[in-house]
């Protein structure tokens, strides 16, 4: 089974702040780490590889510094990594990112399964998985909380909606995005950390992939961010409920919904 895991590098949790003067994100000095949900996707891929054999290929789009995250994935025991990196790809929104990743997956070729984390912890969009699936014309399971290999080319995944849980069967090739409930990602072991530096990290640019310049980077991104700011800090505003217990509860339940 040839599995591609899409990963994203994100700033270390809770370290991102807004400069109160300029209203810009303060990014300097923040260590990039692999998006936590993507670790669940890598773990799922490694377990499927243990079951079915094959290869786990990490795929990311971003600046050269994203090799840090790819290396982390390799140290979890993935086989190789691909980074799509070029100035022309900068400023991509989810649509342009999804297009670029889909093209890279086509270039990798003969991919049976694409796994991604349910969303990134920085942008919180969760859109890239379904966009990649749409571009590749593949079936999708989003927010999977279990994945089981039913046969060489069928997977049954569970997806929890608000009130129900679905069993979804897909025929590979397919795209699956995973929740953290799916598994507990393994640690990078000391030996694997050392060996990860012997594994291949291939870097592709937009020309290597023959990307349409109109569909990548800023040009290929329909959305624009017009402003970035810190949310208003709300302390808890205490509402005092009526003294009659029933009235209190009725008012409470009303306001809670």
């Amino acid at each position: 089974m040839k599995i591609v895991v899409g990963i994203k590098q994100v700033p270390q949790a809770d370290s991102v702040k807004i400069d109160p003067q300029t209203n810009n994100l303060i990014r300097s000095g923040i260590q990039g780490v692999i998006n936590p949900f993507d670790k669940n996707a890598i773990e799922a891929a490694l377990r499927l590889r243990a079951q079915a054999g094959g290869e786990v290929i990490l795929l990311s789009m971003g600046p050269d510094s994203y090799v840090t995250s790819l290396r982390d994935g390799l140290a979890m025991d993935a086989d190789q990594a691909v980074l799509v990196s070029s100035r022309a790809l900068g400023g991509a929104d989810t649509l342009a990112t999804g297009y670029t990743l889909a093209k890279a997956i086509e270039a990798i070729g003969d991919v049976d399964l694409v796994l991604l984390g349910r969303q990134s912890v920085d942008a919180d969009t969760g859109q890239v998985g379904p966009i990649v699936a749409a571009y590749l014309g593949l079936p999708q399971v989003t927010f999977a909380e279990s994945i089981s290999l039913e046969s060489a080319n069928t997977i049954i995944a569970k997806r929890q909606l608000d009130t129900v849980i679905q069993d979804i069967k897909v025929t590979t090739p397919a795209v699956i995005t995973v929740r953290s409930e799916l598994n507990r990602p393994r640690y990078e072991t000391p030996v694997n950390i050392k060996q990860s530096f012997d594994k291949a990290v291939t870097v592709w640019s937009e020309t290597d992939l023959n990307l349409d310049p109109e569909q990548i980077g800023q040009a290929g991104s329909p959305t624009k961010v017009t402003s970035v700011y810190a949310p208003e800090k709300k302390g808890r505003q205490t509402t005092t409920l009526p003294t009659d217990p029933t009235q209190a509860v009725v008012e409470l339940l009303n306001k809670l919904n």
Partner: peptide, 23 residues
């Protein structure tokens, strides 16, 4: 921005080739 909404909307977004802001 339910699980279902967040699954269907981006797939449709790619088909419509437009922008989507999540959540």
């Amino acid at each position: 921005a339910t699980i279902l909404g967040r699954s269907i909307a981006p797939r449709l977004q790619a088909k419509l080739q437009t922008g989507l802001t999540g959540d």
